[in-house]
Design a protein around this nucleic acid. Structure first.
Ligand code: FES
Ligand code: FES
Lengths: 145, 145
DNA sequence: TAGTTTTGGGACTTAATTGTCTTAAATATG
DNA sequence: CATATTTAAGACAATTAAGTCCCAAAACTA
């Protein structure tokens, strides 16, 4: 069950890492993050550019530059990130790929899919980067294979 | 939120169509199904071959040939189809793409993802093609755009 | 048997995703 | 000002997913 693209997965892992290092002041370089998380530097850079353009991250160039969250991690939720990286219609898709789920006539799996989607959206809406970052800081949860 | 591949989506739509036409005896041709559902004939044929090879469908060649469910539609569940078309590990994937979800150390979203996955698996386990086919027969649910 | 219909299987093409690389722009330091 | 560091931007390559096509094999019809 592949729900998220690689770009989103890497972006999310990197953002959680950023949140988990909240004690460190200033910017964290993409080089460090990609190395620690074992993600391709260039690929992560592209994803981070998207996040910067959409106001999730701010970036700074040059020595001691890098990226930082634009807001406190407890004000950034999974839904925010997923909407940027997967599109605003992320939670509006028909399980059978038909257009207009919830708008046009439902497909035969709509009844339960609607419920499943709503439950997932609710979790994404209420899960902050801060919450996830703490779990990593506490070291009982992994961010890398 | 793209959960299923096109092959699975088409296969599923076609199987539900098959279940919805349960009054018709004998085989239904792939040509008819692909036409009614607006699916590429050749692409659907490939997916049907996979389903035939895995005992979900039986096929018959020649005039009046086609495909038919191997079992009554109330004995075929979404999980069966998805396991054939998406792989046996469909419900065992980490949301963040890490290997060994539920086996190795959990990632920070594991707690809620585990629950969401289990809920979905439960629905897939208990939803039969018969149930979905009926909804289509009753004509309040669509299988095509 | 010849011809038609239908699935089977594989080669092939196209499109999307994923990953790599190169160069430019901004910033800091000496 | 020259050089090093770091993100920005986009070209390019590799891989995977999606879709098309051709011909063989099986079965029926006449
Ligand atoms: S219409 Fe298919 S899930 Fe809503
Ligand atoms: S380990 Fe990531 S969801 Fe289970």
């Amino acid at each position: 069950m592949k729900v998220l693209s690689k770009a989103t997965i890497y972006g999310l892992r990197a953002l959680v890492y950023l949140a988990s290092e909240k004690d460190r002041t200033g910017y964290l370089s993409i080089g460090e993050i990609s190395e620690k998380l074992n993600i391709s530097f260039h690929f992560l850079t592209k994803t981070f550019q998207t996040l910067t353009q959409h106001g999730i991250l701010e970036s700074y160039r040059g020595p001691n530059g890098g990226v930082a969250l634009t807001k406190p991690a407890d004000q950034l939720f999974l839904t925010d990130i997923v909407h940027v990286l997967e599109g605003a219609d992320f939670f509006d898709k028909c399980l059978l790929g038909l257009p207009g789920c919830g708008v046009e006539a439902p497909c035969p799996v709509h009844d339960f899919w609607k419920v499943a989607k709503a439950a997932m959206k609710n979790e994404f809406d209420n899960t902050s980067l801060a919450e996830l970052g703490e779990k990593v800081t506490d070291d009982r949860f992994r961010l890398v294979a």
